Amino acid sequence: MLSIIQAAGWPIWPLILCSVIGLALVVERLMSLRDRRIVPAKLLDEVVAVTRQSLPAPDVIAKLHDNSVLGQVLAAGLRAISADPRLNEAALRQVFENVGRVAVHQLERYLNTLGTIAAAAPLLGLFGTVVGMIEIFGSQAPTGATNPTQLAHGISVALYNTAFGLIIAIPALMFYRYFRGKVDYFALELEQAAERMVPHLMRFAVRTAPTSATPPAGT
């Protein structure tokens, strides 16, 4: 491997840096975007069962918040209806929407960086190819003689950098698409959970009776 890096020349080092960062991001996202950490299978049903008769205590809501990303969304709705029993349905939906946006933003963390690596790696490989081609043409002496060592090094730089760029870009792009699909799936699950919780929590809202109009004088 060291001999390959030496043969590829200095343009290979940005690609190596991209590969290290990309691998770290892939491992981090694989660990973070697990179903049990985002949308545990039975959490929503458990919350609905617990809140069937009454709203839970603040410490229970705090534990729910620390459970998962879905728990954060559900806990936000429970806290909102507990803090303001006169909350209307539109305001409750807005609470879920706001916390859902924050949750999705957290799920998308580092994905732009991974996508940038997938897009930039082939360009860095192309840059190395151009550098190699420059060295190839530089090996041609004005007298027409060719320096075989410099010629071979230029060819190595051109080919190795192109190959390394593709080796880095293809997996990075595949994982980027995979993680993007998972984030979209999780976002849909959070939205559906919020839609289910809104009518459930509105049962605990205090209905404000409409104010009757005062009859005109003389009637």
Rank of each mutant, 00 (worst) to 15 (best):
A7T: 01
W13C: 00
W13Y: 14
S19A: 14
L23I: 10
A24F: 10
D35Y: 06
R37Q: 02
V39D: 12
V39C: 12
K42F: 01
L43F: 04
L44R: 05
E46M: 05
V47A: 07
V47G: 13
V48Q: 08
V48I: 13
A49Y: 12
S54I: 00
S54C: 08
L55F: 06
I61L: 07
V69W: 12
L74H: 05
L74P: 08
G77K: 07
G77H: 07
S82Q: 13
E97P: 00
H105I: 00
Q106P: 00
N112I: 03
G115E: 01
I117S: 11
A118S: 15
L123T: 12
L124R: 02
G125D: 02
G125H: 03
T129F: 04
V130E: 02
G132D: 15
F137E: 06
Q140T: 06
P142Q: 11
A145Q: 09
T146V: 15
T146N: 10
N147C: 00
Q150A: 10
Q150I: 02
A158I: 01
A158P: 08
G165S: 07
I170R: 14
P171Y: 12
L173Y: 12
R177K: 09
V183Q: 07
Y185W: 14
L190E: 09
E191C: 00
E191G: 08
Q192F: 02
A194P: 05
M197K: 14
V198R: 09
L201V: 01
L201T: 06
